[in-house]
Design a protein around this nucleic acid. Structure first.
Length: 281
DNA sequence: GTGGGATGGGCAA
DNA sequence: TGCCCCTCCCACA
């Protein structure tokens, strides 16, 4: 679940219940015991999402930082506490509500300085209202790296995961191996605004839906299960737009999906180099 | 019922 | 490069 949109949703829902309240924080499995002791019985000032990171502000130098990673899960509800289940890293509660966290990649207490350092390291987040797309676009335009790698690099742009990478590139008709520096600013601005649109739409019926109704085999009504994505997890299946078989390959440890026909191979650099001197004469 | 894969990312080596 | 985290979901039996 956790691509950036889900993290923003968690931040908003949890804020409604917990912001401004004095909370009990504990660590049922003991692994976060020291951190929990630093936070418990303090007032939570704010919960904010930046990319895939969540920050809970419990006052100066008491910044709870959570990153769900691949397995992390939240569960929440109204008091009383639910039946114990699984291994519980963190639990936050007041008299009315509880929140449980299992299996996160990160759950730690940061100083204000550490929090600032972390935030300085990550690129703009399309879901943050004050995010500056130029920062990401400049980085992409300076890089020979493939756009498929740059979109997943949280220091370039934050909040995009494997599903949105695949679907954004399809919708932009960009091959994932296109070098960043060969993509026009106009095209990157469109990619940014499409990221905002898709990620704001977020989950529909607990699914990420990226297909336009007119491109679906069943254009009316709710998207069927098999028609929520153009290419993500559709290896070998016909493209909804052109009918070609969707391609897949392993790339930097993750699976990359694209349509070879709608997203043609980038022009090889040799032919550009050859034409450049001629054009300048 | 079971087992493999996945929406990440940090860290040791 | 591979391991960790140790969840949820789905395809398959």
């Amino acid at each position: 679940m956790p691509e950036g949109n889900e993290l923003h949703r968690h931040a908003n829902l949890q804020s409604d219940w917990f912001t401004g309240r004095i909370l009990t924080v504990d660590a049922p499995n003991g692994r976060f015991a020291e951190g929990a002791a630093l936070l418990s019985r303090r007032k939570l000032r704010a919960i904010e999402a930046y990319g895939k990171h969540l920050f809970y502000d419990f006052g100066p130098n008491r910044q709870l930082h959570v990153h769900l990673g691949l397995y992390g899960k939240y569960r929440s509800g109204e008091m009383p506490f639910p039946e114990p289940r699984g291994i519980l890293r963190l639990r936050i509660s007041d008299k009315a509500h509880w929140l449980e966290l299992r299996g996160p990649t990160a759950c730690d207490v940061l100083s204000d300085q550490q929090r600032a350092t972390l935030l300085a390291r990550i690129g703009p987040d399309p879901l943050s209202p004050d995010a500056e797309p130029k920062v990401a676009i400049t980085r992409i335009r300076k890089s020979r790296a493939p756009i498929g790698a740059l979109l997943m690099d949280q220091s370039v742009i934050s909040g995009i995961g494997n599903i949105y990478r695949a679907e954004l590139l399809f919708r932009a008709k960009l091959h994932p191996l296109t070098p960043g520096k060969t993509i026009t600013v106009a095209k990157l601005l469109k990619l940014w605004s499409d990221a905002q649109t898709l990620m704001k739409a977020g989950m529909v019926d607990r699914r990420i839906v990226t297909t336009k109704p007119s491109d679906r085999p069943h254009p009316t009504g709710r998207a069927r299960r098999f028609e929520t994505h153009y290419v993500y997890r559709r290896k070998g299946l016909p493209c909804f737009v052109c009918g070609s078989e969707v391609a897949m390959k392993e790339f930097i440890g993750r699976k990359l999906y694209w349509c070879p026909c709608c997203q043609p191979e980038p022009t090889p650099p040799e032919s550009q180099d050859r034409s450049a001197p001629v054009a300048s004469r």
